[in-house]
Design a protein around this nucleic acid. Structure first.
Lengths: 236, 236
DNA sequence: TACTCTTGTCACACCACTGTAATATTATAT
DNA sequence: ATATAATATTACAGTGGTGTGACAAGAGTA
């Protein structure tokens, strides 16, 4: 659930930097490559979520790279957005023919670029099986973003929601604070370790806020001393 | 209701042109795409009312595109008519299996094509598009473009109407601002994120303008902090 | 042309949420 | 039992997400 990584492939440093800054501001991670070969290495190594690919690259055109990526089964689903200075319809048709997912002509506004990236990512991520997770009478519905106990809505903040979702989809397993931080907050944030405890506390409090007819759902969030936390239906 | 827009997806230019002319004469707007990818982009960007889809696209992706569109909730109601040169029953069965709305075998007469398009449009308009959506005493009638609360007309702008229509036909589900923008404004418009908030505000205001005897319908438009908005009959 | 309605954007205010530190409590070891 | 480490709890200030009113440009109309 961490920020998507975008690979920028362009031979002009100025453009790479400009786009990089734009993407950073928009909350993406960005990396860049200068040549098609570099790009290929980076793709295999770092598995970015999307590629911004310049149409004209020295030594092996961008379109050739796009074609290769779309042909290879391992990378064929990797979304590609083509960048080009040309505006003729021919290129557009040809580029889309290769299987490119979208197409942005230079010069473009940062806003447009970000919007198209988000749109493409949404399309490729689309229809993720957001199944309702249920434990006894505790329900978490990702699509409606609701938590209910015996059909009473439970109020909690976004972080507690993500935390609970993570726990409910990984039950009966202990996670260290570091691990929880990676999964819930994402890889590139530094948190004080105790911060996790506070959010655990808030989550437990939220789960206790509904007076339950049977069990106290806060008990499902179990402390494992020296190891971390665990979501479990069995008593500690 | 302006003229319906038909998207023609076929790899042969001659056929695209022929159909395009036919449709123009019949009073439709037409646009065309050569590949499944182009088609997908065009669908997201321009939201056509019906798709004429060639069975055999290079890469055999015609049926694949149909399947994808029918699988995605947001495009699943988009009517599709399959075009094919083959006459075998097998294909027919397979095509309808995917959920395609009708099926025309080449060669076909322009008159037949137009007749089938009208038939499918009539069917889909009648059933999904123009059906009155009702939640308690809040009614939205797409065909007359009116919203009423307890039979009192509610005054709102076109954008708020589209927004409400989208929400009422996708209840109990959270949509991010980006998502709402895609669905209500279309794919190739770039808005400031906060603009959505303002329209939400206007919609809520409109829904509150009628003094309700029972509930305040503005409450159905719920804010989900950090996630987006949701139309829900359950309390937040 | 002048007028109205609609639309997108901005600026400001507000408050829920977040992260941290400080303190209290509990569990384990000696 | 006491000390010590680990966790629970509380309080608080800063931040960021959202609500809201105002405004100017555009679309449509008389």
């Amino acid at each position: 659930m961490s920020d998507p990584t975008i690979l920028i492939v362009d031979d002009e440093p100025a453009i790479r930097d400009m786009i990089g800054i734009t993407l950073d501001l928009a909350g993406f991670n960005s990396m860049s490559a200068e040549t098609a070969h570099q790009a290929h290495v980076a793709i295999v190594d770092s598995r970015p979520d999307l590629i911004l690919l310049d149409w004209m690259l020295p030594g092996g055109s961008g379109i050739e790279l796009a074609r290769r990526l779309k042909r290879d089964e391992l990378t064929s689903t990797l979304p590609i957005i083509m960048l080009t200075a040309k505006t003729s319809e021919d290129n557009k048709v040809q580029g889309l023919d290769v299987g490119v997912d979208d197409y942005v002509t230079k010069p473009f506004s940062p806003r447009e670029l970000v919007a198209r990236i988000k749109a493409v990512l949404r399309r490729s991520n689309g229809s993720t099986q957001d199944k309702v997770i249920r434990v006894f009478d505790l329900q978490l519905d990702p699509s409606s973003h609701r938590v209910t106990i015996e059909d009473n809505p439970v109020d909690m903040g976004p972080t507690e929601f993500k935390l609970l979702k993570f726990f409910m989809s990984h039950q009966e397993k202990v996670f260290s604070r570091d691990h929880i931080q990676d999964q819930v907050w994402g890889g590139n944030v530094y948190l004080e370790e105790r911060t996790i405890d506070v959010h655990i506390r808030r989550l437990r409090k939220a789960l206790s806020s509904i007076e339950p007819t049977s069990i106290n759902y806060a008990r499902l969030i179990q402390t494992v001393r020296g190891a971390g936390y665990r979501f479990s239906v069995k008593p500690a």
